[in-house]
Every structure is written in C-alpha cells, then in structure tokens.
C-alpha cells in the first residue's frame, strides 16, 4: 500500500480532487493499493503496511502546510521511501536543512537532469508541468538531480529513498511516479516508523 498525504489547507478541500486523486490513479494503475490521509491527521498507525509515502501538491495559492512543519517530523526519522511532489518537495527540502525562496513557474518548463540515480537514471531533458511560487534555493544535505532555468527541480536524500520533485509528474510525466514505485517494488523496504 502506498500512503498518499494530502498537504492542502484543509481536509476534504477541492485541492484533494486536483492534487491527490490523479496521483492515486497512477499508483493504482501501477498495481499498488492506496490510502489517502490529510497531513493534519497522520498518525504512526497510518504508516503500518505502507510501502512508501507520496506527499502530494497543493493549489498555487496554498502554502499553509509550511507553517506546520511539526506535522512532518516523521520525515526525519522514518526509513520509508518518500516522493514529495511540489509542496511535498518543499517540505522535504525544509526537513533536511534546505531553504526555500520565491520562485514562480506556471506551465510547461524544460527540466535538465544533472545527476545519476535509479529513478532519474539517464542523462536527459524533458518538459514538465510546474505550479509553484516557492522553490528550493539551497538543498541542505540533499543531492540535486535536476534543475530548470529557474530553480532546483529534483532532490534526493544521499542515504535514503527520499525524493522531491518540483514539477507535477501526474501531468505528462507519469513515468517519474512509476519509476519511483518500481524502486519501491524492487527493494521492498520495510517501514520502520
């Protein structure tokens, strides 16, 4: 089971339909079950049986989650694989010593892969859908795997399977979620939360 965490400003918002459900469909098509929970309600029990966590994006105007970093403390200690999407990457960045700054991208942007990795396994560039007003300006302990002209686009923890992508892979780049899930399937990490 893949745990999808909704980062929108309130539980049951319209953002859930737009930012959580499309990711859930990709995950389910890849053969995994999903469970969705709002970040206000995440408990240790939610991680039981979860093979990985995806932190989903939020509407462009919604940065409320950034004021509630204590709700994401589990990110630091859990060994479960994590994919942070947009807002999710911002939280991954903050958790691991990175810094965020103003940076607005709306629409398709060219991404350049600059690091080698199991998910971003080849040197390539691709177009991706962006929707953010903030971005990671300093990655802290995280490795930078891809960039755009505007900002850091993909980060990864050096020792753990924790990724952050600034773009929205559910739009035209489903392969990113699928490769992340392949990695999860291959390694079958055991959650230790």
């Amino acid at each position: 089971m893949i745990l999808l965490i909704d980062l929108c400003y309130r539980e049951g918002s319209l953002g859930f339909d737009e930012y959580v459900l499309p990711v859930a469909r990709i995950v389910e098509r890849s053969g995994f079950e999903t469970r969705s929970v709002h970040f206000h309600r995440v408990t240790v029990a939610d991680f039981a049986g979860a093979e990985a966590v995806i932190l989903c994006g939020t509407p462009l105007a919604d940065n409320a989650f950034l004021k509630e970093q204590e709700a994401f403390l589990w990110l630091k200690t859990s060994e479960i694989p994590v994919l942070g999407v947009c807002a999710g990457m911002e939280m991954v960045c903050k958790t691991f010593g990175g810094l965020l700054g103003p940076c607005t991208e709306i629409g398709m942007t060219e991404i350049r892969v600059i690091g080698r990795d199991l998910v971003f396994s080849e040197s390539l560039s691709f177009s991706a859908y962006e929707l953010h007003t903030l971005a990671c300006t300093y990655p802290g302990v995280l490795e930078v795997l891809a960039v755009s002209d505007c900002c850091i686009q993909v980060v990864k923890h050096p020792l753990r399977s924790v990724y952050g992508v600034m773009f929205h892979p559910e739009v035209r780049n489903e392969w990113v979620v699928e490769r992340f899930l392949s990695l999860v399937r291959k390694e079958r990490f055991s959650p230790r939360q």
């Binding site: 319209l14 953002g15 339909d17 737009e18 459900l21 499309p22 469909r25 509407p59 462009l60 105007a61 919604d62 559910e170 739009v171």
Partner: peptide, 10 residues
C-alpha cells in the same frame, strides 16, 4: 485568486 480544477486528470 485561488484556482481549482476539480476534474484535473480525472
């Protein structure tokens, strides 16, 4: 303004 697309990639 906020922007919502509730049918996005439905």
């Amino acid at each position: 303004l906020w922007c919502f697309n509730p049918l996005w990639h439905t």
